[in-house]
Computed example of a mutant assay.
Amino acid sequence: MKPTNEWLQSRAKAMRRAPVLYERRMWALLRDRRLEGLKFRRQKVIGRYIVDFVCFRHRLIVEADGPQHDDPEADAARDDWLAAQGFRVLRFPNRQIENRSHEVIAAIRAAAAPQT
């Protein structure tokens, strides 16, 4: 059964209200334009997917990959669809968010930097 847009919007709203630990930690890095003035939004519906964080200006999606991301084929299909819509997807495992947040920040900065 394909989820409806109404269901996806409701689910995204619930996810914003009760983020998991590493999504909260990632949001602490991204919110209020703290990172290079980039405006990120969290738990947004794009097509039939809910993305963790998105900067629409740079068409950049940031995903905090916890244990629920145990299906690499599904993640790859999702990423391919999002790429076809013009988005770049960066995925960071929980351990990297926890222990090497400086690498996470550097990767996001590099992805949002103007391409020369």
Rank of each mutant, 00 (worst) to 15 (best):
M1G: 15
T4V: 07
T4N: 01
W7H: 15
L8C: 04
L8H: 04
L8M: 05
Q9P: 00
Q9E: 13
R11F: 04
A14P: 11
A14S: 14
A14K: 13
M15K: 11
R17C: 12
P19N: 03
P19V: 05
V20M: 14
V20G: 15
L21R: 13
L21I: 07
L21K: 11
L21F: 14
E23A: 10
R25P: 01
L29P: 04
L29E: 13
L29A: 09
L29Y: 02
L30H: 08
D32C: 03
R33H: 14
L35P: 03
E36H: 02
G37S: 04
K39V: 04
F40N: 01
F40V: 03
R41K: 12
Q43E: 10
Q43D: 03
K44T: 08
V45S: 10
I46F: 07
I46P: 13
I46C: 09
I46Q: 09
R48H: 14
I50N: 06
V51W: 08
V51S: 03
V51G: 02
V51K: 07
V51H: 09
D52N: 10
F53V: 03
F53E: 00
V54T: 00
C55Y: 09
C55G: 10
F56G: 12
H58T: 06
H58A: 12
R59K: 15
L60Q: 11
L60F: 06
I61V: 15
I61D: 11
I61L: 12
D65Q: 12
G66Y: 08
G66T: 08
Q68N: 11
D70V: 11
D71G: 07
P72F: 10
A74R: 07
A74E: 10
A74Y: 13
D75K: 05
A76T: 10
A76W: 09
A77E: 06
A77F: 02
A77L: 12
A77G: 00
R78Q: 06
R78N: 07
D79M: 01
D79G: 02
W81R: 00
A84K: 11
Q85C: 05
G86Q: 11
F87K: 09
F87Y: 15
R88S: 06
V89Y: 02
R91M: 01
F92D: 03
P93G: 12
P93Y: 03
P93F: 10
R95I: 05
I97N: 00
I97W: 02
E98P: 11
N99L: 14
R100V: 02
S101P: 08
S101G: 07
H102L: 14
V104Y: 12
I105P: 10
A107L: 00
A107W: 01
I108G: 13
A110Q: 15
A110I: 04
A111W: 01
A111N: 06
A111Y: 08
A112N: 02
A112F: 04
A113T: 08
A113R: 05
P114S: 14
T116C: 08
